[in-house]
Simulated assay, not measured.
Amino acid sequence: MLTYFSECQHPDKKQRMQLSRKLGLVPRQVKFWFQNRRIQKAQQERADSSALKEESDRIRCENTAIREAYEHTICHNCGDAPVHDNSYFDAQKL
Rank of each mutant, 00 (worst) to 15 (best):
C75W: 04
D90E: 14
K22R: 15
Q92M: 10
A91G: 06
E54M: 07
A42T: 02
D57I: 10
Y88I: 10
N77M: 12
C8E: 14
R38W: 00
D12E: 12
M1E: 07
L94G: 01
L94P: 00
A91V: 12
S50M: 11
S20I: 00
D57T: 11
E62H: 09
K93G: 00
L2N: 15
T64W: 04
P11C: 08
V30G: 03
P82R: 06
T64N: 06
Q40V: 02
K31T: 04
R60G: 05
R16Y: 01
Q92S: 15
A81P: 08
S87V: 06
N63Q: 15
L19Y: 01
N36P: 00
R16K: 14
M1D: 05
Y4W: 06
R60Y: 09
Q35S: 07
Q44V: 11
R16A: 06
I59P: 02
P82Y: 05
M1L: 11
A51H: 08
A65V: 03
P11W: 01
S6L: 14
Y70C: 12
V26K: 15
E45A: 14
H76A: 13
H10L: 08
Q35C: 02
E68F: 10
N63Y: 12
T64F: 05
D57N: 10
R67F: 05
V26E: 14
S49E: 15
L19P: 01
P27S: 05
W33N: 03
N36H: 11
Y4H: 12
R38H: 01
C75F: 02
A91L: 12
L52W: 03
E54C: 06
A47L: 13
L25S: 03
Q35N: 07
W33P: 02
C75D: 15
Q44P: 00
C78Y: 05
Q18H: 03
F32C: 03
Q35A: 10
K14D: 13
V83E: 11
F32P: 00
M17P: 00
A65R: 12
Q44F: 09
N63K: 13
R60N: 10
L52Q: 15
E71V: 06
F32I: 08
T3F: 11
M17L: 15
H72M: 02
K53Y: 05
L23N: 05
L19C: 01
R67I: 08
R60C: 09
S6R: 15
D90W: 07
A81C: 11
Y70H: 11
K13I: 09
V30M: 04
E7Y: 09
K22N: 10
Q15P: 01
S87Y: 09
T73E: 10
D57M: 10
S20F: 02
K22Y: 07
K31L: 04
Y88P: 02
K93I: 07
Y88H: 11
D48A: 13
S6K: 14
S50K: 15
N77Q: 14
N63G: 07
F34E: 00
D48W: 07
Q44E: 15
D90G: 03
Q92D: 15
D80W: 05
A42I: 04
F89T: 06
S50F: 11
F89H: 13
R37N: 00
D85Q: 12
A65I: 04
L52H: 12
Q18S: 05
C8D: 14
A91T: 08
E54I: 06
R46A: 11
C78R: 06
E62N: 09
L25E: 04
K13L: 08
I39M: 08
N86G: 09
